[in-house]
Design a protein around this nucleic acid. Sequence first.
DNA 1: TTGTACGCGTTATCAG
DNA 2: CTGATAACGCGTACAA
Lengths: 390, 390
Amino acid sequence: MKDVAAALNVSTATVSRSLRDDPAISLETRRAVLDMARSLQYRPSAAARRLRTRASSLIGVVVQSVGDGYVGDVVLGIQQRARDLGYQPLLFAAEGREDLEAEALDVFLSEQVTEFIAVSPTGRPQLLRRAVEEGLHVAVINWDIEVPASLFDSVERGRIGTRVTNFGSSAGIDVSSIAFHDVAAGMMATSHLAGLGHRQLVHVRGPNVRSSLFRLLGFRRALETIGLWPQPVLSPEPHAQESREAAVAAYLRDTRPPVGMVAYDDLSAVAALRAAHRMGWRVPEDLSVVGIDDIQFAAYTNPGLTTVAQPKQELGALAVDALLLPGKADPGTQILDGYLVVRESTAPVERDAGEHGQQAADTSSDLSSGSAGVLSIRPATHTGDAMMDG
Amino acid sequence: MKDVAAALNVSTATVSRSLRDDPAISLETRRAVLDMARSLQYRPSAAARRLRTRASSLIGVVVQSVGDGYVGDVVLGIQQRARDLGYQPLLFAAEGREDLEAEALDVFLSEQVTEFIAVSPTGRPQLLRRAVEEGLHVAVINWDIEVPASLFDSVERGRIGTRVTNFGSSAGIDVSSIAFHDVAAGMMATSHLAGLGHRQLVHVRGPNVRSSLFRLLGFRRALETIGLWPQPVLSPEPHAQESREAAVAAYLRDTRPPVGMVAYDDLSAVAALRAAHRMGWRVPEDLSVVGIDDIQFAAYTNPGLTTVAQPKQELGALAVDALLLPGKADPGTQILDGYLVVRESTAPVERDAGEHGQQAADTSSDLSSGSAGVLSIRPATHTGDAMMDG
DNA sequence: TTGTACGCGTTATCAG
DNA sequence: CTGATAACGCGTACAA
């Protein structure tokens, strides 16, 4: 800056003002300064600016893990929006450990971070509480607060009280909360299946957290609307992929097609896909599966997964807006709707599907071992061409 | 710092020295300072320190995208190692755009970043060249330099010259290069298949970049060793998942089982899985598929994908070491071996598999449409129990 | 072993 | 509209 000033015979103050678009500066000097700065390869020192202004144009972002395919898109949305507003995200992966969350906060404070976004933080409110105490502006995306198991029971079996539907949001702390509309997502998934003609539906439950509760609630709501409630709800171990697969397999063993399944999330849906294959159920002919989230891999499963997508980038962008553009109607908590992405794991139920399906359900135990079933698992030669017509 | 000094009746210089473990300080004063600092909630100002020392304890990290499941693990490795050494990664997702890569560099420079890691950057060397010109220490992880298509031809059809095997590394720029051993990975995948009894092998090629070339080379090398070269190589459109699926489907249509397939990467392998299913080939009975990379989703495919894993976290950690611990034998470029992860997509070839397989190959066109093939795609009732014995 | 004093590059205040 | 100057919090050369 000194060099620029010297080269133009002005003071560094003038340079500083020009660079920052101070209104009290003549157009010509500003232009001259800007040109000179460029030609001198001037690069502002973030450190000096920060020291002086006590603010850093850095947005601290805590995530559980980078690159689980969901977080990635949210972070991308954050980065893009932040970039537009002259900010830069400072990312910290806390791996779900509270000690690392605390450390992240320390780092941010040392870096003079003033804006703070937590993406799907751990259930307890300590992190966010401390953050606001330290004077940060904070926004939470999809805060998956832990929820007592009893609430699941009331949603599943009892009547639905308002205390259930109001649960969650910002828990009394002064933070902006941006969340996916889990209830609506559950309803969309369910309605899609119902619209396809499914009358026998099942839900695969997730862990004891808010999003899981709400998705189950959506499942129930949609079914009540069309008079199909109650329907079975599977409750595998939380976060255990094998348990999910086993739960679905066990259910299919005692059931006749066609079935429409709403999975807690895409990962659960993937487990269901595997279970179906193992049990000899065809997807989507015997079993239609809908996931929720639209993780990147949902397009690559076999068959491609129909799912209710989260507007992941938008969630990130809105969190940035909530922090940096407080004028922009900041209602404390914003709920974003998802949208259905139809791929190949759902299809209309066929009239006669029940017959064929029953065979499958009766006979299937484990197709992947042994060779006795080898021949019949594929079409016989003479049916090969005919299939194209069907 | 002033507060701490005042509370102890010492100078700020003493405090500063104590905090930074300056040897010229008495043990008791240091301890007193440390205690007081803690009880006063002292937090160092990164900005001031940075301004003074002109270095930032920040590691600039450019990636193509956060959260594609591969990058995530690498970044995790970087963060963990960096944390041990008192550094903090500053992540920038460049989306493969060179303008954003340039911007990332500007941000880093403004932030007084001195250490720079590029994870799978775009092919051209401009970014890295500029970075070293600006005086940064730079390390590259898996630099996928673009490679002329002609080299692929020589590997595939001609003799292998040394110019092929030496290609790549740091391209004359003064950077530390950390890379996955793609040749060895290709060989491991191929040998695994050969060891399972496969004699009919095929490779699905990747885009025109170093890693792709090397994996193909590994495929050839392994086969030459056991006298099975040449074998077919499929060349779908780069980065086009549908094209990969189509290429594999077309190949399977004209081929008889059993086939052992080495895919360029896990995503290609997933495409192969879908193609196989569409064509009525069973995996792994008719078709064994090996991927490379071990992306997070490889464990969830149906069937689970056998693959050669990259030591992703280690790649990240080593890049940090190369930058921060120059004493630690920095040989310019380090090559890390992968390891085979056997899941369900590969199996020993069965003696009689050829017979059955032929049926499949002849008749399969599209099992997912029509209902004529419905019955036969699953085992008939009477074989259901027997299967468990096989 | 400790204290004094300066400067890192900016921005904000005050004066002109 | 512009200039002079102080201060942000820290590290370090120099002095004690």
